[in-house]
Amino acid sequence: MALNSVNTNVGAMVALQNLQSTNSELATVQSRINTGKKVNSAKDNGAIWAIAQGQRAEMGALNAVKDSLNRGQSAVDVGIAAGETVSDLLTQMKEKALAATDTSLSTSARSALNEDFVALRKQIASTVSNASFNGVSLLSGTDGFKALANAGGTSTIDIGVEDMSLSGSIVTLAADEKIDTVTAATDALALVDSSIANVSASLARLGTGSKALGTHANFVGKLQDTIESGIGNLVDADLAKESARLQALQTKQQLGVQALSIANSSTSILLGLFR
């Protein structure tokens, strides 16, 4: 038989413990509904939180990778645009050089052709010297561009320099090339022809590099989406489930309050025994 005591109300103690447990569960569910996450801090689930944080760091690192790839693609696109301009200028120079090989030209006509040729040559030099993006030039110098390829920084996509400066291995025309004589025009014509072929090959390589950077940037974007989805699977709450649980706990809370009220009233019943 249970002991009736005004000093120790066991029923009230049990009811209070159950109510406190319900209130704790209710607070957890309300937090999940408010934040949309079942793991919002390390105290919710230390292991899962640590994994999610690691993946968030990976996401941040991949943002830097995308930025690097985008800068590289912009630098390559500038190089391609300038290279195409150089190719167009060389095509015009070929026309001038070929015309200057005509032995029947008058001195004034040859001089006019030479002036046009020299002006086009200077435009090539100007185009190459100004073909840079954010300080990176792929048509001059020797550095090229190394775009980050992974979050650890251990892999890169390398784009080499296609140096189209005059007197180089691609544009073989000398910096002072002229067509003021038949012999000079003939020599210049051969150099222009080889330069056109070389520039076309360089543009093909730059185009391949641009495509590689774009393809990898798309891959990194998809990888970020996959990681973000994985993080969500780890920490996001099922709001439909939590909503149903909230209603159940609220009902349980109300019943717990009533149970505690009933348990607390049991001591007053003892007064009736002394009447």
Rank of each mutant, 00 (worst) to 15 (best):
S200F: 04
G168Q: 05
L271K: 13
A201Q: 13
I269F: 11
V235Q: 04
L213W: 12
T226S: 15
T156A: 10
S243Y: 00
I269G: 03
L260K: 04
A188I: 05
V171T: 01
T267C: 05
T215M: 13
R245L: 04
L203R: 14
N264T: 08
A174T: 04
V192I: 11
T267G: 04
L249Y: 00
G221K: 15
E177D: 09
Q250A: 03
G168V: 00
Q247H: 06
A240D: 13
D187N: 14
L260S: 01
A217T: 14
N218I: 12
T215S: 15
R205L: 14
Q253M: 07
T226M: 13
G221T: 15
I157M: 06
A217G: 13
G207C: 11
G232A: 08
L255I: 07
L213Q: 10
L239I: 12
L213N: 12
A204N: 14
K222I: 12
V199M: 04
K252L: 05
T154N: 13
A212W: 07
L270W: 05
G153A: 08
T208V: 10
L223C: 06
L234Q: 08
E242H: 02
L246Y: 00
A240K: 13
I196R: 08
T183Q: 11
S266W: 00
K178M: 07
G209V: 05
G230N: 13
A185M: 06
D180E: 09
F274K: 14
G207T: 10
A217D: 15
G214H: 08
K222N: 15
D236M: 06
I196A: 04
I159N: 09
L166P: 00
E242F: 02
L246P: 02
Q254I: 06
L191D: 04
L273G: 07
K241A: 13
K252F: 00
N233T: 06
T154W: 03
A248M: 07
Q224T: 15
E162K: 15
L273V: 10
I170G: 00
G232F: 01
A201I: 09
S194K: 08
G256E: 01
N264A: 08
V182P: 11
G232I: 05
D236K: 10
A190W: 03
D193Y: 07
S194Q: 11
E162F: 02
L271C: 05
G221I: 09
N233V: 03
G160S: 12
I269Q: 11
Q224C: 06
M164P: 02
K222T: 15
A204V: 06
S194A: 13
S167H: 01
V199W: 01
T156Q: 12
T181P: 14
S268N: 13
A240Y: 12
G168Y: 06
A240M: 07
D187W: 04
S266L: 08
S200H: 06
G272R: 10
D176P: 07
F274S: 11
Q247V: 08
L173K: 02
M164F: 00
L249D: 02
L213H: 13
A240W: 05
L234P: 04
I179E: 07
E242Q: 09
L189M: 07
